[in-house]
Design a protein around this nucleic acid. Sequence first.
RNA 1: GCGGGUGUAGCUCAGUGGUAGAGCAUCACGUUGCCAACGUGAUGGUCGUGGGUUCGAGUCCCAUCACCCGCUCCA
Length: 688
Amino acid sequence: MPANSLEQVRNLCMRRGFVFPGSAVYGGVASFWDYGPLGVELLNNIKKAWWQDTIYTRNDMEGLDAAVLMSRKVWQHSGHEATFSDPLVDCKACRSRFRADDLVGAWIGKVRQEDVRRADTWLRHFQAHERVCAAMPEPLRTAGVQIMQEIQAAHEIWWPLGRLFLKFKDAGDEAAARKMVDDEDARRANQRMKSAQEAHKQFIEQNATAFEFACFKAKEIECPKCGSKEFTEPRNFNLMFQSHVGPVAADKGTDEEKAARVYLRPETAQGIFMNFAHVQRAMARKIPFGVAQIGKAFRNEITPGNFIFRTREFEQMEIEFFIKPPQFVKEGEKNDQQWHEEWVEQRFNWWLRYATSPSATLEDRDATAARFRARAQTPDELAHYAKATTDIEYLFPGSLGWGEIEGVANRTDFDLTAHSNDIPEEDLKRLKLEPNKDSTVKLDYFDPDAKARYIPWVIEPSAGATRAMLTFLCEAYHDEVVTEPTKQQIDQIKSDAAMIRKNAEKKIKEAQKEIAAGREAKHDPAKVEAFLNVLDETVARLPASLTELLTALDHEGAQNLEPVKKFRPPTEKLVEDCTRTVLRLHPALAPVKLAVFPLKKNKPELVELAQAIKERFQRHFRVVYDDSAGIGRLYRRQDEIGTPFCITVDFESLEDGTVTVRERDSMEQERVKIDDLPSYLLPRLQGE
RNA sequence: GCGGGUGUAGCUCAGUGGUAGAGCAUCACGUUGCCAACGUGAUGGUCGUGGGUUCGAGUCCCAUCACCCGCUCCA
């Protein structure tokens, strides 16, 4: 069984040097992770497997590595800048989309259109603003509420005077009005009102974004279409990280600033489109052909999380495969839809191949295959550039569930057309594009076969390299029982579990009493009961369920139960003694391919030979030498990081030149001549 | 963004206002003939951070940061 929680994988990653939290010395920065010694090996191996399988073993592919920073114009014409630069809200009732700042601006101005001479209008207005301020985060909340209370207090004093003043003025009684203006109390009240209003205005201006957000949170805004007050939160879709080329002193938004602005790519694809003509000419390629690229991409995600699944800096493995537009496809040639299907199949099989270890049984393979699926996106999920997209998804453990690991999109001729000058009117209409006055070229292609010039269509298989790492880790992770606990040990667990139940049932009764008396209870009876059921069920299935015991103890309802705390350490010890953690990684992906041990570390001749074997292989792949523990522990350590083979040098080795080769998944050992090691290991490391 | 939880040694955690602990890991020496061996000793913590209450705070209060879970969201 693969990992049953992301937590297990996360722990292993941090403990064994796959992944570390970024900027940890300063408390960390959410969503950024560093890849440690084993992580960089695994990630490199994944990228290598992808590069070899998509470029070397095909006849229609080329590689590329474009710059991360690209001209702002790339992202203007690709549609990325315009589509995702404003704070947007969706009405949950009628699904209309609005700019959040427009709605809030209209709402603030609304009172001016109403009868400004009515006291209750103003009061309602101030109270509404106070509710909005109350929905703001601290310290804005306190400051805002204070300002709104002051304005209400000032209004209460000022309003009767103001109304009197207006009354005189309306009646044409200038003398009385003037007398009021000169009156000391009235002036003071007026002054207080004015400064309160000023403070209010400034507060909103200075905290525009937070205020905007709070308006929706406080449910003060109405949908202009349907009147509902239920909106999604304002999302500022400015997903791209910005920087500037050269020193820029200008303020944001000025022409000077914009001219120097560059974006960190949110996808590697545009770098390929920029180089379509270069690659085609330089390599004398005919359509169909593809360009592959591996590289970092950056998205300022609104909600990052789930370990390395969604991060703001990540790595993509992308292919843009250029094909004939439908109107030029001849009888017997693949059209865009068929190319799309073929790539989905190709890529799906790639995932399955590397998700399984060669030692996997048919049942294992079926179980693995069941955790992958290809799912066609529904029309409302499709990105602005795509005609169709099929997501390849993996069933991650725990709450993450099905997650996208690759998208295979049919981008039509959208991108190459968008980056071309002189776009014909019908294409502008068809692709909903604006004319491109910035581009210097037309990204078309003369097809000698069709004897026509056209802009190719594109199929884009785009996989996440960092997500691939998480996928393969989750799939490879196994806690295995290797030594059955004794009957005595099982009986001990059973009696401990019975004791836990007895104690917990007492706690449930106590809690029920507290709840009946209207007091807060220390335990939630339902949760404790649920925990007891899980525990009993797990204990009943011993010894097969041994590794599940610890998961059961992590149950919500197990918290604050004393006997559970006592039960945990010996149980942990027992589970650890009886199980091994093994990463059944495909050998091509394993960060360390081979480990060499001397059977005894205090025999120099064994150490010497073991180190010599290590040195013999270290030019070809990652191999480690270790003698810092007993042989059993050394094997376990390597299992945990997925090392496919371990070699042990013993006294027999000195005599007949053979060593013990121990295979990771089966733990079986074989005697192999040192000279035969290359021919023994090589095919096995390639997964044959 | 909201709600709940967690934060103590490299890791897993105990510590219920009164001298900071255990197991594992690491290092040294010895022992050890193949699946998480053992003995002896050593290293290692301003208890996430910043305030406050107190004679005294890992423990109580407030704030803040990070992570986890659940919603919400997601090119």
